[in-house]
């Protein structure tokens, strides 16, 4: 059993996943009617792009050995509030600015709770996510679904824009990928995130600005959630806050783990996010075409996630010697 995992491990995980992705794509192309149509491929790309943008945010946090469970709540509420402000005939600039301030504040709150109050990220972000959703729904929004008021042609035009027939969200996703790659690889803040994820105490002792960087990482992920939400709203001219209760958040975590960004932190990068996004995007799309009910979709996704977590645990033990003791 371990031998098999090791075989997987020798080859890098993302290569294996990439292979799986191609296999899945080919299988769906041959087996599924309506999979390999222009319409579906475009739909596929659009949904992949949204998932991917969120996964970049989650990925950055996970590399820093955190996790952001407030991502989808931020996406939904920030954009819903933004649309609501437009509905109250605020100028778009002001509305955007207000929403942005809120998003940054929530991201910073996540960071402060984990870095300064030293709460476990999983609880802190769960709490802020619930808080944001509760606050938004009770104080600012009167319905679940907020529609884009008429007269914002620029915004809808953005949603329908094509660059050489590539949907705008795909273009944005590509830009974000390139940006994230450069930032993680070549900026010192990117390196800090890897170092903090690898060994927080060593990073602190070395004199790295550990806590500010943790705050930064949550602010970045909140901003990416906002961007994903804006794109979503621009496409369908509304924001349904019930998305918070959907399985989107788990899909995002699935992408990150499947792609091979170990939950133990300090590892992985944009390449992992791309293959993870593609695999999960294709899987979700194919299951929708197959008309598999949500119940079974969730079952399948949960199985894949569990398998990925197990592989992750085997491939990326926190401590090789502890792991090799075999009795822990």
């Amino acid at each position: 059993m371990t031998g098999w995992f090791l075989l997987l491990g020798r080859r890098r995980q993302e290569d294996t996943v990439f292979l799986l992705t191609i296999l899945l794509f080919l299988t769906f192309s041959f087996v599924l009617h309506g999979f390999l149509t222009t319409g579906n491929i475009i739909a596929l790309l659009r949904s992949v792009a949204l998932l991917g943008i969120l996964a970049v945010g989650m990925g950055i946090v996970v590399i820093g050995r955190g996790i952001d469970l407030s991502l989808v709540a931020i996406l939904a509420i920030s954009v819903a509030v933004f649309l609501n402000l437009l509905g109250q005939s605020y100028p778009i600039g002001i509305a955007l600015l207000l929403a942005l301030v809120g998003v940054i504040a929530v991201g910073a709150l996540n960071g402060v709770l984990t870095a300064y109050a030293e709460m476990p990220a999983i609880f802190a972000t769960l709490a802020t996510g619930t808080f944001v959703y509760g606050l938004g729904r009770s104080q600012f929004l009167t319905q679940d679904v907020i529609y884009l008021p008429p007269g914002h042609d620029l915004f809808t035009a953005f949603g329908n824009a094509r660059l050489a027939s590539i949907p705008v969200e795909v273009v944005v996703f590509a830009f974000i990928l390139v940006g994230a790659f450069l930032w993680l690889r070549f900026s010192k803040y990117g390196r800090y995130i890897y170092l903090i994820g690898d060994n927080l105490n060593a990073a602190r002792n070395a004199g790295l600005p550990v806590r500010p960087v943790i705050v930064l990482q949550y602010v970045v992920s909140a901003l990416l959630a906002f961007v994903a939400g804006l794109i979503m709203a621009a496409g369908i001219h509304s924001m349904n806050t019930r998305i918070v209760n959907s399985s989107l958040l788990y899909d995002v975590i699935l992408v990150v783990v499947i792609g091979g960004i170990g939950l133990s932190g300090g590892k992985g990068g944009v390449r992992n996010l791309i293959v993870g996004t593609l695999l999960i995007g294709i899987l979700l799309n194919g299951m929708t075409i197959l008309d598999i009910s949500d119940l079974y979709q969730n079952l399948i996704k949960a199985t894949v996630l569990l398998a990925a977590l197990i592989v992750d645990g085997v491939l990326n033990p926190r401590d090789e010697q502890t792991d090799q003791q075999g009795d822990i």
Binding site: N201, N205, G266
Partner: peptide
């Protein structure tokens, strides 16, 4: 190991 180096780097 605990607080000195970054093991995966």
């Amino acid at each position: 190991k605990l607080e000195g180096f970054f093991e995966t780097k």
